[in-house]
Amino acid sequence: MKGGEEQGKINLRLPKSQGKRRAKATGRPLDFALPLSYAASVATKSRVIMVRSNRILNRGGEVDEEALQAVVDLALPRLVDAPSPAAAWGFLFTSRQTVGVKVNCIGGRLLSPSPRWVPVLVRGLKQAGLEEERIIFWDRSSRELREAGFPICQEGAGVRCFGTDASGAGYGPEPMQNGSYAGLVSRILTHLTSAQIDLCLLKDHNLSGLSGALKNLYGAIHNPNKYHDHHCDPYLADLYGLPSFRQKFRLFICEAVRVQYHGGPGFKPRWVEDYCSILFSLDPVALDYVSWQLLDRIRRAHGLPTLEEEGRPPTYILTAGDAAHRLGRCSWSEIELMELSA
């Protein structure tokens, strides 16, 4: 194993609002799908692994596949307390599953997860016994995937990659409802896959405040434009509360290699920081909570106000973790942040 562990180095501070919206510790179990043995071992905390790699960007400014592989191999065993990467993949997924990898490609080639993730995640999932044909990289449209550099493939041998707009995919016939959310959900999530990886990008968002793991889920529904009011709060929490989402998404990965820390969600080169990190968690709320602190720290370092100071705190994260939703954890006392270097 490369690199070393530096737990707690980030020393992120709580935002002011956190005290007001903090989830109450009721003792009721969280409502998200952790593997049982892991859930028992970390019943009181959600683990977030953040791996920093100085090699992650090559000289051409592209994500380096070998470095990415090293990051994943370092993070996953720590995430689930497994002895090896293969054991970690086997812990999270089974050979009988069809696994979707939901990416967020709306930002185009310059602001989307790297296509280098495809071989890395495929190698990992194959270690869990999956055939390549049972792995689907997806987003809302094939065009956006293609423009972000993901090779479209819907049939034949090899890994699949297509949008919800592709023939045979589409949205479900009837709206799904949960709380404030109602809309159609991609059949790639509901029908074509049995487990999911959320592969998102950390970026600023002019309306929601932050785009990360939960915000990536808007790419799985037909009407995200209806749910951006009030910083997407409580809509994102209610969306993730739908069983199709909550039960299938098992692993959350946030690429924070090039962070659009202001001016998002579109690409604005003047506000991009090469942060060279990737975050992993089984809890999207905890992952987004850490991402929020991270984004604020980068913003402060560049002389910008925090998201809350700018009037757009991503409170949907706190709502997702509140006593009514309990979809994950959103306070430092409930999050175990582990910082690693690869």
Partner: peptide, 12 residues
């Protein structure tokens, strides 16, 4: 609606 680059308004 305040709409960022590449985004759509509420109407879609």
């Amino acid at each position: 609606c305040r709409v960022a680059d590449l985004e759509r308004g509420f109407c879609g």
